[in-house]
Design a protein around this nucleic acid. Structure first.
Lengths: 197, 197
DNA sequence: TATGTATGTTAGCACTAACTAACATAATAA
DNA sequence: TTATTATGTTAGTTAGTGCTAACATACATA
């Protein structure tokens, strides 16, 4: 019925790889075809145009987070443990989606609406998750009166920026130990920073 | 001798604008010439190749920060005031260099060495500045024992990520009031977070 | 006045990109 | 078996794109 990968899948994967490395414009359809191991015309028969391939790639890889699956038993752990866990999970997700994030960066001007929507949704999901956690823990961990939306952006900002600097710009994959130290420090600062005194 | 702008300057400016909007590959030399109001061949007489133009653009706009000029009378203000001031100043710098930052994002794969060096230097400058401030104030504001390099990355991460989300991805310029609120919150969280208890 | 310098105009070359047409082939389904 | 479907091959079209050559012009300087 179907052997490991369909032609469509092979093309989308190849295009994904190329786009994330060189950007849309700099990637030729011939290149994609070669990498996918199919003839060039097969691309066009499946997707019509180069743009069609791009859109398929976006559709295929745009789910940035699987946060819904991230069910934490909030009662069983203290806030510090939870935040470290969430932070680590976030970093892993970013790593796993590194190539798509690159595409987001590169092509934000080409498809501003589509791409900024994806980004926006991604952030909003995380924000919601974090706000929920903080509010649920407020009984045992009382908070300063601060704007919650800004508070969570502070936390995510530390992690995202750390990811971006290392993985995207310096193209350096941070060793586990170093990453854990950074995350622990971030959480410590953040927690003391938002606690009511 | 020279009327307002030299031809070279006009070309570099036009190229800067195009590259930041569409990326290097998607920009044609004809486009640059038109925007600069010169004939296409003039580009090549001045810069030899399209790559030459790009390098000139980088040379011209790569100074990301004028932090050296940022002399704060540290004694006269308390740490909170200073950090808010530095944060605001950082955000302004990022705004002013928005187009260059876009180019950084777009072309990091084309010139990984050059561009990641620029980025690296930029961050290191800020890190140094912040560490200095914190250490100098440690007398009146004692700190937790934390890795200083991570600590400053936490602070910068909040601001940089906030900038990037709004200005680059959502293409939304944050109103002054909102920005101030965010910066104040960031500083408050950060300061409480690093204070020795 | 003569010469050099900075520019423009026109034409065009060599190359590549996206995309198509026409025909061939192998596997699958009826 | 026959018809259909998914693919490949070859060749080509069209429209750029980076870049050059050759010649012209306007201005400033010697």
């Amino acid at each position: 019925m179907c052997n490991s990968k369909s032609t469509k899948e092979k093309i989308i994967e190849a295009a994904y790889d190329c786009f994330s490395k060189k950007g849309y414009v700099a990637t030729s359809t011939k290149e994609i075809a070669n990498k996918a191991g199919v003839s060039e015309i097969t691309l066009f028969r499946h997707f019509g145009t180069k743009d069609g391939i791009f859109e398929a790639v976006i559709r295929n890889y745009s789910i940035l987070s699987d946060l819904k699956k991230l069910s934490i038993e909030i009662d069983k752990y203290d806030l510090e443990e939870i935040l470290i866990f969430v932070g680590k999970r976030m970093y892993d997700t970013l790593l796993k989606k590194k190539r798509f994030i690159r595409i987001l960066f590169f092509e934000i001007n080409k498809y501003p609406d589509t791409l900024s929507n994806i980004y926006d949704k991604f952030i909003r999901d995380i924000d919601k998750l974090l706000i929920n956690i903080l509010l649920e823990k407020q009984g045992s961990y009382p908070l300063k009166t601060l704007d919650m939306n800004i508070v969570v952006k502070a936390f995510m900002g530390m992690i995202f920026s750390y990811f971006q600097t290392n993985e995207i710009f310096l193209n350096r994959s941070v060793p586990d130990e170093e990453l854990n130290l950074a995350l622990n420090t971030f959480v410590k600062i953040f927690l003391e920073g938002i606690r009511a005194n």
